[in-house]
Design a protein around this nucleic acid. Structure first.
Length: 419
DNA sequence: GATCCACAGGAAATAGTGGCTT
DNA sequence: AAGCCACTATTTCCTGTGGATC
């Protein structure tokens, strides 16, 4: 870590055309996929986790473990850290043969798909099976076959397992595969990682019994913990002196208040650093952090809008058109006809009102629209009112990139005026 | 207190896609 | 080629609801 005095640098800046500002020495350390080699502020969880994994070292049938906690509270990081350790330790014992299989279930909505992906995870890349077509039991059979071929103890880490929803068949099957004689060579263990506490209650009773032998809860980080984590990372990621006073505390404070997620805190610091660099400062200021925050919020919303389906886009444009013409809020009764018109002009078959309203509800859930329930009683009935929760200009900019839809006149006028 | 508005949103049926099996 | 299988997005049908009005 080399530190230039800021005076020296100011001088050099005056004499060169491209002033070189140094904020990051290794910015990768602030990315959320970076795997730290030590864990900060998760001692209790580590202890509990370690105890739960003890049977593996003893060569016994592993316990099933469930981790709960919001995103960015260290579930995955702790798991990686501990399982690496465990694998290293297990090589010391001849009779312990440990394999770990990771599967992120983010885009998997059923047990069937989890099973298929596990099989593919275990198979070589040139011998994958397709994600549809087989009967369910067939896929389970394939899975047992692959598992048994591995032998020893196999820990299946199912990250984001709550995405499979209520279809928890596979969580029931795997733990008992051995007692049902589907497996003879392999002792399987399931480690489920979930963002959603509610997932536990949605599990069918038979799964609860077997799977929830060990439950470890990860609480959101509080501000001091986040600051400790940031401090440790920043030490290596940023140059000394690149952090203005109060910056770490501010990042930690914002993140603690909002989500309690280390990821958010790290993102904030990283973005703030980028902003400082972009404005040729060699020190991150609190203003940078505040700006980073709104920038992150914007880009998250923007991403949400871009990822919508075609009809989501059409619904968004319909809302935008109304919002340009008059001040809201608007109800489905107003939005739907606009939506129909825009769809027809774009040569897309419009959806029925019922379905289109689902898309509006999606928009509200993503934080793009605000939704308020209204009830006007006998004469008016009850309905929802929608209005934009975000800047119209931002929406307009994003909307102008949509392909295959023709924008209403007022909307495209606004697009041009922004350019 | 009964009525009734205007809609929300659940549930089941249907369409359509991609892929396996025989 | 015909019959399955899983899955997603949608349509169709319908029941439920809170509160102003009768």
């Amino acid at each position: 870590m080399v530190l230039q005095s800021s005076d020296e640098r100011d001088e050099s800046r005056m004499t060169t055309f491209t002033p070189d500002t140094d904020i990051f020495c290794d910015e990768d350390m602030l990315r959320d996929d970076y795997q730290p080699n030590s864990i900060t502020a998760r001692e209790t969880e580590l202890d509990a986790y370690q105890t739960a994994l003890q049977p593996v070292i003893n060569g016994a049938q592993p316990r099933n473990i469930f981790l709960y906690g919001k995103t960015g509270v260290g579930k995955t990081a702790v798991s990686r850290y501990l399982l690496d350790q465990l694998q290293r330790d297990s090589t010391q014992y001849d009779d312990v043969d440990l394999s770990v299989v990771w599967l992120n279930c983010t885009n998997l909505s059923s047990s069937y798909q989890v099973a298929v992906n596990l099989v593919n995870e275990l198979r070589p890349a040139d011998d994958q099976i397709s994600t549809t077509g087989y009967p369910q039991q067939r896929v389970f059979d394939l899975l047992y076959e692959e598992l048994d071929a591995v032998g020893g103890t196999v820990l299946l880490v199912l990250d984001e397992i709550d995405h499979i929803g209520s279809d928890d068949e596979i969580l029931y099957e795997i733990p008992r595969a051995r007692s049902n004689d589907y497996l003879t060579e392999t002792k399987p263990g399931v480690i489920g990682i979930s963002n959603d506490f509610g997932f536990r209650d949605d599990l069918s009773p038979k799964v609860k019994d077997t799977l929830c032998e060990e439950e470890i809860h990860f609480a959101p980080y509080n501000a001091p913990e986040l600051e400790a984590i940031l401090g440790r990372r920043a030490e290596e990621a940023l140059y000394d002196g690149a952090i203005g006073s109060g910056v770490l505390g501010l990042c930690a404070g914002i993140a603690a208040q909002d989500t309690g997620s280390a990821r958010q805190a790290l993102d904030l610091l990283y973005q703030a650093g980028e902003l400082a660099r972009a404005t040729d400062h060699d020190r991150i200021s609190e203003t940078n952090v505040h700006d980073a925050r709104s920038k992150l919020e914007r880009s998250q919303i923007e991403h949400g809008m871009r990822e919508l389906t075609r009809h989501g886009h059409l619904s968004l444009i319909a809302m935008l058109q109304l919002a340009i013409e008059s001040t809201g809020p608007f109800r489905v009764r107003n939005i739907y006809p606009r939506y129909r018109t825009i769809a027809e002009q774009s040569n897309i078959d419009p959806l029925v009102r019922r379905r289109m309203h689902d898309h509006l509800a999606d928009l509200a859930m993503l934080g793009i629209l605000d939704r308020t329930a209204r009830n006007e009683g006998r004469s008016g009935g009850q309905y929802y009112e929608y209005s934009f929760a975000v800047d119209l200009d931002l929406v307009t900019t994003v909307v102008s990139d949509f392909e295959g839809v023709s924008l209403p006149r007022r909307v495209s006028e606004l697009v041009h005026s922004l350019e």
